[in-house]
Design a protein around this nucleic acid. Structure first.
Lengths: 214, 214
DNA sequence: CGCGCTATTGTGGAAATCCGCAACGGCCGG
DNA sequence: CCGGCCGTTGCGGATTTCCACAATAGCGCG
C-alpha cells in the first residue's frame, strides 16, 4: 500500500470531518473505529452497504472506508450507487483477498485508494486523512460552481442569448446585427450581464467563465 | 480486467501508431506481437526496460505494453523513468502474479491499465487501441500548448509585464499609472501583444490564456 | 558605423464602450 | 387594474480604445 496523494505528511483533518466505516464484520469495524479515534478522527459504523446507503448522510466533509466483500451488496456496487448520488465522497477500499482486477476496476471507477489487509495502522490513517483533505477540496470546488450556476440561471433569456456572443469577443455592433436589435439594446444586456455575474468588464467575465458560456 | 476508458468500441488506431512490447520473455513478446499484428497494429519488441529506455523513440503516437517483473530494471521503475522524460505515453502493465499493492501503485502513478495474465485476447487489444487513442489525444493537447508557449516566449520583456495586468481586466490608464508610463505606451504594448498572440481583442486573449498569464 | 529592435511619447481623429434619463409595449400575477 | 419584469429604443455626453504617422534614445551585433 502506498501513500496516495502525498503532498507531504497529511495535516489535521478538516473541521467536522467524519469517517464512515462500512464492513459486515463487527470486530473489524470496531477495531478500525478505535484506531481512527485514537488519531482524533470521528467515525460512524455501518454493518452493510445497504445500511450505509439508506441512512448515511455524506453532505458534510467525510470519506468512506469500506470492505470489498460484504453480504448482499458488495463494496464495489455500494460505491457505484454512492457515486450515482454523491460523486464527491472519497472511498477507500479494504480487501483481505489479493484480487488485481477488482483493484484495477475500483481505481478506474474513481476509488480513492485500495488497501490490502493486513495493513500498517499509520499508513491507513494517513490515507484516511488525505482522503478527507480531498473531500474538502472537492466540496470547495463544487460550492464555487454552484454559485456560478445560480448566477447564470438568474440571467433573462435574452441575456443568456447575448452571453456567448459577448464571450466570443464580438463587437456590440456585430451582436446587434446578428440579433436584429439596436446597439443600445446590446449595451443594456451587456451591462445587466456584468452586474448579475458580479464582474466589471468583459475580460473579468471571460476569466470567470472561460469557455463555459458556449 | 475491465474496459478502461470505454467510449464505445474503440475504432481504428491513429495513423502511424506504434506499440512497444517490453518483456524479457521472448515467447511472450512474440505472442503479443503476433496478436497485435493480427489486428493491424505495428509493434516493436524490447527484451528489457533498459533496452527500451535506451533506444526507443516515443515521439510519435505510441503506447507501451510492459511486463511488471523483469530482470534488472523492473516494469514500474522503467515506467517512472519513462515518465521523467515523456509523461505522455500511455503504459499498460502485464503481470502473472496477483499483486494488489503493485497494481494500485502503478495506477496511482498514472499507468493506463493493469492486466493480469492470462488475459482475454480481444480485451487486451481493445485496451491497446484505447491507449493509442489516449496517446493521440495527449499529443494534440501538448502540441497546442507548445504553440502557445512559443508565442508567449516571443513577447518582449515589457509586453510580458503588461500581459497579466491586461488579463486582470485593468484599464489602460490604470496599467499606465502602475508602470509609470504614458497611456499611449500601454496601447502600443497592448496592440503588439494581440498581434503576437494572434487575437483581435482582450476577450479573445483571455479565452486563449484563461488564468495562464499570471 | 549602420541597422534592427525595444521602449517611450505625442498628435489628431475615429470608433467603440458606457450610461443617465426617458419612454413604450407586452406579459404575468396579485 | 396596477405593478413588476422583460425587451426595446433614442438622445446626448463622457470615457476608453484603437491607430496612422512621426520621432527620440539606448543597446547589441555584424
Amino acid at each position: 500500500m502506498s501513500d496516495p496523494h502525498a503532498l507531504g505528511h497529511p495535516a489535521a483533518p478538516p473541521a467536522g470531518a467524519l469517517v464512515h466505516i462500512v464492513d459486515d464484520d463487527e470486530a473489524i469495524r470496531d477495531s478500525l473505529a478505535f484506531l481512527l479515534a485514537s488519531r482524533g478522527l470521528v467515525t460512524r459504523e455501518w454493518p452493510s452497504g445497504e445500511a450505509f446507503l439508506e441512512a448515511a448522510s455524506t453532505e458534510g466533509c467525510c470519506c468512506v472506508v469500506m470492505d470489498v466483500r460484504m453480504g448482499e451488496l458488495g463494496g464495489i456496487e455500494t460505491f457505484e450507487r454512492l457515486r450515482g448520488r454523491d460523486a464527491g465522497t472519497p472511498v477507500i477500499f479494504l480487501t483481505g483477498h489479493a484480487d488485481v482486477p477488482i483493484a484495477v476496476e475500483a481505481l478506474k471507477k474513481g476509488a480513492f485508494d485500495f488497501v490490502e489487509k493486513p495493513f500498517n495502522d499509520n499508513a491507513l490513517v494517513d490515507v484516511v486523512i488525505a482522503a478527507l483533505a480531498e473531500a474538502e477540496s472537492r466540496r470547495s470546488r463544487v460550492a464555487g460552481r454552484g454559485v456560478l450556476e445560480a448566477r447564470l440561471k438568474n440571467l433573462t433569456p435574452r441575456e443568456a442569448e447575448v452571453l456567448p456572443l459577448l464571450l466570443g469577443g464580438r463587437l456590440n455592433k456585430q451582436i446587434a446585427d446578428e440579433l436584429g436589435v439596436a446597439m443600445r439594446t446590446v449595451e443594456v444586456h451587456r451591462a445587466r450581464i456584468f452586474e448579475k455575474m458580479g464582474v466589471r468588464n468583459a475580460v473579468e467575465l471571460t476569466r470567470l467563465l472561460g469557455g463555459a458560456g458556449d
